[in-house]
Amino acid sequence: MEIRISGVTKQFYPDIVALRDVYLTIPQGDFVYLVGPTGSGKTTLMRLITRELVPTKGQITVGDCNLRSLGAIDLAYYRRDIGVVFQDFRLIEGLTVYENISFVQEAIGMPKNLVRERTGEILDRLGLWRRRHLYPEQLSGGEQQRVAIARAMVNCPGILLADEPTGNLDLATAEDIMSILLSINASGTTVLVATHNQYIVDEFRQRVVGIRRGRVVRDERKGRYEADGDL
């Protein structure tokens, strides 16, 4: 599914413009880093793609779907094809690792045997099988991030959005998370990563879209992090 962002402006209050006339096309299977200083509009762009927000001007289409015209039911079905890794993980405290991953499948009516099979598979793939009975507060930051990725991935979405997936993680864990995201991308999933992490952008070089003050200021294949502009 291609993501096409055409002339999108997002204004929150009369004087806060988060995004300004953004044009961006992300083909199916692309891996994109969204880089830019805090408050530049990276998270807003992701929230526009998940349709938590609607543009003040312009339009976003994902595949054949114009996000502005989605009704409540269509929105639910659209979101089943989008995996989101939140900056603050948003794991559910009262549920175990296993339940945190299985509930998103149950929420879309997946049969029990398939839920068991796919949860087991993803836990195994992300090295969480032995942690499956633990609760989020019993996990390290890196493990919580893995669970968040597992939850975003388990329904095999066409697009994966990860907001600061390596934030607050040590280098080794960040590398580990990045290799997971790259392997997901290798299987055909479009991956968008909003990040401040210069090391991972330079180490795992992919397409880099720089955003400053709500505008796209650069878009480079195999780009690098620009400490002056992106920080």
Binding site: T50, A72, V104, A107
Partner: peptide, 13 residues
């Protein structure tokens, strides 16, 4: 909120 974001329908929630 998480359920709605992962594609659960309002009726299901």
């Amino acid at each position: 909120e998480t359920m709605l974001l992962v594609g659960a329908t309002p009726a299901f929630v």
